Computed example of a mutant assay.
Amino acid sequence: MVKIMGLTNDEQFQQAATLYEEIWKDNDHSIEERIQKHSSYSGFRGLAILSNEGSMIGFSYGYTSLPTQFYHNLLAEELNALEYQRWLKDCFEFVELAIHPSYRNRGFARLLATKLVEAVENKTAILTTQVDNHPARTLYKSLGWKDIKEPFFPGNSKQAYVIMGKEL
């Protein structure tokens, strides 16, 4: 039986960063700094799933999306005024969902994605994922997320993303 817990302290942020780096083969170590920074944002909410042995096998987190934030402004540039009012005005930004590959296809991503937004008081939630990440897009669509804009190239990224939204 796995255990779901809050992602709330530096030790857990470090475990999440280690898992992220293992999954994405990313060794720039900036993910831990990003999680720590994001944990100070209004409305931060993070969850982790632990294996029976107590190791972190997945995590998700997000926060209230505000105009003072870098990614909020990237998203705002892509949306027209009506889309901005609908999707970003009172929005929870679903930032990250990661599951260790050996634990995928067992419902853990669905569980984390559902639980993360369950108690959020914002009117909407928004996320981005790679256009070609079909498993993620399929999961999110099955949970009621809608495509808002595709393609989206955040910052200087050459990778195409899709902006997805959900009414809460």
Rank of each mutant, 00 (worst) to 15 (best):
M1W: 14
V2I: 14
V2G: 08
K3R: 15
I4E: 08
I4R: 12
M5D: 14
M5R: 14
L7Q: 00
L7C: 02
T8M: 10
Q12L: 07
Q14D: 07
Q14W: 04
Q15A: 15
Q15G: 05
Q15S: 13
A16N: 02
A16S: 08
A17T: 13
T18P: 05
L19K: 09
L19R: 11
L19F: 15
Y20T: 14
E22D: 15
W24C: 09
K25M: 14
D26M: 09
N27D: 08
D28M: 06
D28T: 09
D28A: 06
H29P: 05
I31C: 12
I31T: 14
E32V: 15
E32M: 15
E33F: 09
R34P: 03
Q36H: 12
K37M: 13
H38M: 07
Y41K: 09
S42Y: 08
F44W: 03
F44P: 01
F44I: 03
F44S: 01
R45P: 04
R45C: 09
G46Q: 01
L47C: 04
I49L: 07
S51L: 10
S51V: 10
N52W: 12
N52T: 15
N52P: 11
E53K: 13
G54F: 09
G54V: 10
G54W: 12
S55H: 15
I57V: 14
I57W: 01
S65V: 07
P67A: 04
T68P: 07
Q69L: 13
Q69W: 12
Q69C: 12
H72C: 03
L75N: 00
L75Q: 00
L75A: 00
E78M: 05
L82A: 15
L82C: 09
Q85R: 12
R86C: 07
W87D: 00
L88F: 01
D90V: 01
F92P: 00
F92D: 02
E93G: 03
E93S: 04
E93C: 04
F94T: 02
E96I: 09
H100E: 13
H100T: 08
H100S: 14
S102V: 08
Y103G: 03
R104W: 10
R106Q: 15
F108K: 08
A109Q: 07
A109F: 08
L112K: 03
T114K: 05
V117M: 03
V117Q: 02
V120S: 06
V120K: 04
V120P: 00
N122G: 07
K123P: 00
K123T: 07
T124S: 07
T124C: 05
I126W: 01
I126Q: 00
T128F: 08
Q130F: 10
V131E: 12
V131F: 10
V131L: 13
N133F: 01
N133V: 01
H134E: 14
H134T: 14
H134V: 11
P135H: 02
A136Q: 00
T138E: 09
Y140W: 05
S142E: 05
L143M: 06
G144I: 06
W145K: 02
K146Y: 12
K146E: 15
K146R: 14
I148R: 04
K149N: 04
P151L: 03
P151Y: 03
P151H: 03
F152Q: 01
P154F: 03
P154E: 03
P154C: 06
N156M: 13
K158L: 11
K158T: 11
Y161G: 01
V162S: 04
V162C: 06
I163L: 09
M164W: 11
M164V: 10
M164C: 13
M164H: 07
M164I: 11
K166G: 02
L168C: 04
